[in-house]
């Protein structure tokens, strides 16, 4: 694949710009509905307004890690192997880590006024925290040096290894908490009986965060592709500098002399 093709975003400039506008509009609508129009909760009062961010952020985080897994499978599958999937996996994982961090922080800010604690050893919380570190490790692994191909393969396999761990972590943590704690202080955040405007606001939040995810994924992908491209060009330039002035043009003379002088110094 040529470098130029990768320099565009995932969605193409026009779709990308439209997504940006739609994301901004949805987020503004969410602010209006979440903070002004939706009534305060009967039991939790205003604190419940944090739910309109917390639940969508968690959804976006899981979506992001799901896309990372999917892209990793597509990368490993010989027929669909393309660096595009590797970059999508990396971009999605990073956006996912940001959303996971947000989910944890928002959960904490919500737990404190409602339950009186910053953190509960609830199965879902613990699983999310483990997920956060799991994908932080994945991102660090991606930063290891290596050729695009070796890095891609390594990262894709690591993503799948991390992914099969998620259900195991979830079940083990679930058992652990239900065995040692008879009744949980709280029931799951999402009360199925919420009505009207509140339910609408929550769905609006999910929509807004999904759009935010798509927008961020596209932008982050483009940055990864640009960096990848630049690395390739710098490598080529370094090789040219070693071999001597190639078909670089007029500026080649001075650059060539400097490179030559440097080469003379090195034993």
């Amino acid at each position: 694949m040529t470098g130029g093709a990768r320099r565009a975003g995932l969605l193409g400039p026009r779709v990308s710009a439209t997504t940006g506008v739609a994301t901004a509009a949805a987020l503004v609508a969410l602010v209006v509905f979440g903070l002004a129009i939706a009534p305060p909760d009967e039991i939790q009062g205003d604190a419940q307004r944090i739910m309109y961010l917390h639940v969508p952020a968690a959804w976006a985080a899981y979506l992001a890690f799901g896309i990372t897994t999917l892209a990793s499978i597509l990368y490993l599958w010989p027929r669909t192997r393309s660096i595009v999937w590797d970059l999508v996996a990396g971009a999605s994982a990073e956006v996912g880590v940001v959303f996971t961090g947000l989910t944890l922080a928002l959960g904490s800010l919500w737990a404190r006024p409602v339950w009186g604690i910053w953190w509960a050893w609830d199965a879902r919380l613990v699983t999310t925290a483990v997920l956060f570190f799991l994908y932080l490790g994945y991102l660090s692994l991606r930063r290891l040096p290596g050729t695009a191909e070796s890095r891609g393969k390594r990262a894709a396999i690591a993503a799948l290894i991390a992914f099969i761990d998620v259900p195991v972590v979830h079940f083990s943590v679930n058992w652990w908490r239900t065995l040692h704690q008879q009744a949980t202080v709280f029931n799951p955040e999402l009360d199925p009986q919420i009505h009207g405007v509140m339910a609408f606001t929550l769905w609006l939040g999910v929509l807004a965060f999904t759009l935010t995810y798509v927008y961020l994924l596209d932008r982050r992908y483009r940055l990864l592709a640009l960096d990848e491209d630049r690395e390739e060009r710098e490598l080529e330039a370094a090789i040219r500098a070693r071999v001597g002035p190639g078909p670089a043009g007029g500026a080649g003379t001075t650059a060539g002399t400097t490179a030559g002088a440097r080469a003379g110094v090195t034993p």
Partner: peptide
């Protein structure tokens, strides 16, 4: 109070997302 937590949560989210977009 509750309002403080709500402001912290919404403001914090906006700040984090904005910072991330700007960084990219």
């Amino acid at each position: 109070n509750d309002a403080g937590f709500v402001v912290a949560a919404w403001g914090g989210t906006a700040a984090v997302l904005a910072a991330y977009v700007i960084r990219i």
